[in-house]
Simulated assay, not measured.
Amino acid sequence: MKTFSATAALLTVALLAAAPPARADTATITVTGRVLPGTCTMGNLTVALDDIEAGDVTPGQASGLKPGVLNFTGCAGVASVDLSFDGTADAAQDNHWQNSAASGPASGVAVALLEGASGTTYLQKGATTTVPVAGASTAKLDVRAGYYRKSGTAMTAGAVSTQVTVTAVYK
């Protein structure tokens, strides 16, 4: 029996040696992705203009300006915010924001929106501006809103209201 076991073992080794080697194969794992800019939370802004006498609305310039701040909070992974402004422009009032008061609207007057705490940069339909964030968790855009009447335009008393849509692109 020992001869048979030794012969069987020798035969098994010989068959394994004569068998073709197992094939090896390789594969590559490719991982792709993209880090997108973070976001902020942009708050709504309501600017309540003071009532103004019709004679105090200076033709051709913003009158009765009130400040406001468009705030961005919770910013993460954002270096800047590109803003664009949209709404209904009033062609009769040099493309300032159309008075859309639903009840008892004033005529011959629009809403002016200016960028910054001072200066004369109007934010009209299609305007863009950039707000730097630079690693902070908050940012802001100072604005001023007021009444606007084009020179030579007749004006009647009434309510003034408008809405401006601000779109933010985070970078």
Rank of each mutant, 00 (worst) to 15 (best):
A76C: 09
A48E: 10
A101Q: 12
A139Q: 02
D51N: 12
V35E: 03
L49T: 01
S63M: 05
A117T: 13
L65K: 13
L114F: 00
V131H: 05
D50E: 15
K66L: 12
C75R: 01
C40Q: 04
A89Y: 07
F72D: 00
T88V: 10
S63K: 02
T138W: 03
L65Y: 12
G60I: 06
S118L: 09
S100G: 09
D82I: 13
A136V: 04
I29D: 03
L114V: 00
L114W: 00
P67S: 05
L141P: 01
T88Y: 07
R149T: 08
G55A: 15
T138Y: 04
L65H: 08
P37I: 01
G108L: 11
K150Q: 06
A145L: 02
G64Q: 10
A27V: 14
I29L: 15
L114M: 01
G126P: 10
L65R: 14
V133R: 11
D90S: 02
V47M: 06
T39G: 05
G119I: 10
T138F: 04
A112W: 02
K140W: 14
D82R: 12
A92Y: 08
P67N: 04
C75L: 00
R34T: 11
D86F: 05
P67A: 04
G38R: 15
T73M: 15
Y147A: 00
N71Y: 07
